[in-house]
């Protein structure tokens, strides 16, 4: 394969990877900062109850 093309493709992979990583870390930080306590009992009760909706 043309080494020039390979270079562009590799660069693209690296760039997308870095952007994805940055976004991921940002989201993780946001999730930590804006953490909401969810009562596990609510989920448990919902599991038991009937209803498809």
């Amino acid at each position: 394969m043309d080494p020039q093309l390979m270079k562009i493709a590799m660069g693209g992979l690296a760039v997308l990877g870095v952007i994805g990583l940055v976004f991921g870390i940002g989201l993780a930080l946001a999730a930590q900062k804006f953490h909401v306590e969810v009562d596990p009992k609510v989920e448990a009760v919902k599991e038991v109850l009937a209803g498809a909706q």
Binding site: I8, G11, G12, V15, L16, I19, F23, G26, L27, A30
Partner: peptide, 22 residues
């Protein structure tokens, strides 16, 4: 600047999901 315009669709979908999640 990096001549990666062909990645635009992948990028835009990623950004939309990022915003929605945020």
């Amino acid at each position: 600047p990096l001549n990666l315009q062909f990645f635009q669709v992948v990028m835009f979908i990623g950004i939309v999901s990022l915003i929605v999640q945020a």
